[in-house]
Amino acid sequence: MKRTTILITILSIFLSCKKEHTKSNFLGNWSSTSDSNFNIDIQFFNDSTVVDNPLMIGTYSTRWKIVNKRIEQNMLRNNGQFAKEKSVLDFEFNSTKDTLLIKKQADSIYFKFRRIKNNFEYLENRIGLKLDLPMTNEPLTSYGNKDFVFNVYLGKKNDSVIIKTDNHLRRFGKLEHQVISFYSSKKEQEKDSLKFVVFTDRSLKDRDLDSIKTILKKLPIKKFFRIYKCQEYIKDNWKTEINWVGKYEN
């Protein structure tokens, strides 16, 4: 009898630890990937979650627990109009536990979230590009008023140049319309202050950048400001705004 009691106690502890280990895989910050066509951020804490879904539900928080392969949630605070008081979600992790797939039980499609450790990773995830920025010994300065900048992000994949903007641009054919729309939205006295702020991965060759600049120079914005690496960019607070520095280039 005593041996049976000990075995039951050990088994209970093992199952409890296993459950907590599963829950610990979630703890931290998660953001929807750039190919999801929506922006949702989730923070998992031990007993609660905070979800930011600006397009539909707003910001809300839940109590949560893991039951088998499901997340069970109960609403704590809701600033939106469409969130249910209770919900059950199916989930899957990738092998390295840095990608989380979530779907409602009634849905057939999983939504993909990436674990985010700092504010630089938050940007990379949002635009869908890894950015190892170039370095320089030349003096660097801030680009100024962010309302006057059009961001262009450049990387490479399989020897092809990848171009993104804050609107998740995938093809150059749409760039002209984005730039003209941005340019036209500004007052006449502001237009001389507009600039392209160009983020480039170090894998990009000078000739690649020159080719892209040739295309950009045909558009109404004429100034180029290139961003360079700075250790002060990276903050543990994943949504801290980054004060980018760089220099004007031709």
Rank of each mutant, 00 (worst) to 15 (best):
L76F: 00
Y143G: 06
I102T: 05
V149L: 14
E124N: 09
L123Q: 06
K164P: 07
N145P: 09
F91R: 05
K84V: 08
K112C: 01
N53H: 06
R77V: 14
V88K: 03
D47G: 03
Q81I: 10
M56V: 15
L140R: 09
W64I: 01
S95Y: 07
L27T: 07
N125E: 10
T49D: 01
G128T: 06
S108R: 13
D47C: 01
I57C: 12
M135R: 14
S34H: 13
E124G: 04
D52H: 09
V152E: 02
E20D: 04
M75S: 13
W64E: 02
A83D: 00
L101I: 00
N37F: 12
I127S: 01
E20F: 01
E85R: 12
N39R: 10
W30T: 04
R126T: 14
R114A: 09
V50H: 02
K86G: 03
V161I: 15
L55W: 08
T49R: 02
K23S: 10
D35S: 14
E85M: 04
F38G: 01
K146M: 09
K104H: 11
S48I: 13
T99H: 05
K156R: 14
T59C: 08
K146F: 07
R126L: 10
L129E: 08
N118R: 05
R70M: 11
S87E: 10
I163C: 07
V50P: 02
Y110A: 08
N145R: 11
D52V: 08
R70T: 13
I116V: 15
C17M: 12
Q105C: 06
T62A: 07
L154I: 15
K65S: 10
N25C: 11
D147E: 15
K84W: 07
N158E: 13
N79H: 10
N68G: 09
I71Y: 00
E124F: 05
H21D: 12
N53M: 04
F111M: 11
Y60D: 04
H21M: 14
G28Q: 04
I71V: 12
F111C: 05
K18F: 11
T136S: 13
K84M: 11
F91D: 04
I116Y: 00
F26M: 06
F148R: 09
N46D: 15
G144C: 06
K112G: 00
S24N: 15
Q81F: 14
N119D: 09
F91P: 04
I163Y: 03
Q105L: 12
I163N: 07
D35N: 14
N68D: 14
Y110C: 07
L89G: 08
Q105R: 12
E124C: 03
F38M: 08
L123G: 02
S48R: 10
K156G: 03
L89D: 05
L89F: 11
L100C: 01
T59A: 11
F82H: 13
Y153W: 11
I71M: 11
K112L: 08
I102Q: 06
A106I: 13
S95K: 14
P54V: 08
K156W: 00
T96M: 02
L154Y: 05
D147C: 02
D52L: 04
F45V: 00
S34Q: 05
G128V: 07
I162L: 15
D90H: 03
T62P: 01
Y60Q: 00
I163S: 00
N125H: 00
L131K: 03
P139I: 01
E138C: 01
E92N: 13
V149H: 06
